[in-house]
Design a protein around this nucleic acid. Sequence first.
DNA 1: TCCATTAGTATCCTTTTTGATACTATACTA
DNA 2: TAGTATAGTATCAAAAAGGATACTAATGGA
Lengths: 115, 115
Amino acid sequence: MKIEPELCRVEDALGILVGKWKPIILLHLLKNGTQRFSELKRNVPGVTQKMLTKQLRELEDEDIIERVVYPQVPPKVEYSITEYGRSLEPILAAMHEWGTKHTLHKMEKLNQGSL
Amino acid sequence: MKIEPELCRVEDALGILVGKWKPIILLHLLKNGTQRFSELKRNVPGVTQKMLTKQLRELEDEDIIERVVYPQVPPKVEYSITEYGRSLEPILAAMHEWGTKHTLHKMEKLNQGSL
DNA sequence: TCCATTAGTATCCTTTTTGATACTATACTA
DNA sequence: TAGTATAGTATCAAAAAGGATACTAATGGA
């Protein structure tokens, strides 16, 4: 690898993905396309309104997702991945793949421990 | 992408990389090979002993790095990436690449704002 | 004898992140 | 007229992460 630690930009990508609910939010938007706030809330089990709002705002601030407000009552707000946000997909896919292997790796380790 | 949000293992990979000093520690070990504790401390500017120890322990617990203690005084402890830990390299590389583009993206955005 | 060296711990403190809960506006419906 | 629905805020509390500082053991060297 030729990443010079001094010029490292890993943190930039990491910073965007870090947040208890961000990966799952992104996966839902990538998989299902545009979603309303309430749909996301249903799809992200356990998240509170406050946290969902916060994570969405942070992703929006980084241009990863787009927020569209319809001027009506009750409110309607739709969220979707931006073109730019879609560029995170390979990273998410790589992490998912690695994570899957890592889960196995840890299970093997546990089994060894019990022999 | 075919990651089902319900079966998502992104968090596993993310969890291992998250920690204020972990990426830079990993990059140094990947680039320079085995390093002593004191070398890492020099190479990771700003880190305290406590944090360096903590992050190293966490990486060790996940089998990403290996710790070898030499029974001598003053102590000598060497850290190195494991084979397994090396499998994170593509992810780090992808994040670095993305992060580099993201830095540019943000600069463009700032410039637009000042027009 | 005193000091430096190394790889840590121990303690206390601050900051950041996350969570629980209650509250809001406004239109539509029963 | 009371209740429902939506996308939030506000406030307070708890937990997690990070940081500052001081301390330790044992050896070699001045």
